[in-house]
Simulated assay, not measured.
Amino acid sequence: MSLRRLPAVLVVGAVIAALLSGCSGDRTSPTAASSTAAVGPVASSSSSSPSPSATTTPDDAESPTTSATVPPPLPQPVASVPKVKRSGQPSSPSVTAPAAKFTAPVTYPDGVRLDIVRTVRATETGHGPGVMAGRKYVRFELKLTNGSAKAINLNQVVLTTYYSASKQLAAPVYTESAKTYDFSGIVKPGASATAFYAFAVPDSGLKKLTMVVDFDGTHTSATYSGAVVVS
């Protein structure tokens, strides 16, 4: 009789071994999952056991260890600002306008005009990706008025700003506190469009600043240069 029961005992033993193996896998899986989530600020936490606080939250963003403030970029002098090539638009502009001071508009002979409506000085605030808390920037409100007989495509507008005698490139600021809004869409004859652009510029850079607004392929880039008066 013991010989007939022997296979059953072996089967039961195998089942028990399999169950124990399954339980061991369940115990180790949470640890493996938590280790993959410990990236960035979480990895610097002093706690060694996984907990709900390991998940990034708005409160975590307020702590000094998660500040996105970083050193300013290395000097990047601007040698020249080439005209942007746009698909479906002229490869060479045919309508030109002279450069202007920041207090005057750039006016084209076909009736297109670009005004700097307002210039504001501000400092970056907040936390998160792309934010450099404490960095000063200048924010421009631009208005393009189409007084020509043709529509203007503003879906590929490129602004380049640099400052000081060394022509240091000014980094664009696209944070929530800056409230920027690019040009876009088609501006029909007689209509206008408004946009808001911000650039990181130190106080000394406001004395000698250049901003190049390349808004389409038909017109030369609108260029402003000189001292900037901010409000």
Rank of each mutant, 00 (worst) to 15 (best):
L3M: 08
R4G: 01
V9P: 00
V12H: 01
V12L: 15
I16L: 15
L19Q: 02
L19G: 00
S21C: 10
G22L: 15
G25F: 12
R27M: 14
S29K: 14
T31M: 14
A33I: 15
T36Q: 13
A37K: 11
S46Y: 06
S47H: 10
T57R: 11
P58S: 08
E62G: 02
S63E: 15
S67A: 12
P71N: 09
P73R: 02
P77Y: 08
V78P: 03
R86N: 04
G88Y: 08
S94A: 11
A97V: 13
P98K: 02
A100I: 13
P105V: 06
Y108S: 03
Y108K: 04
P109S: 14
V112L: 14
R113W: 04
A133H: 09
V138M: 06
N146E: 07
N146S: 08
G147K: 11
A149G: 03
K150Q: 11
I152W: 04
L154I: 13
V158E: 01
V158Y: 02
V158D: 01
T161V: 15
T161I: 02
Y162Q: 05
S164P: 00
A165E: 13
A170Y: 06
E176G: 12
S177A: 11
F183T: 01
G185P: 05
A195N: 04
F196N: 09
L206W: 08
K207V: 06
K208C: 05
T210G: 03
T210R: 12
G217W: 10
T223D: 02
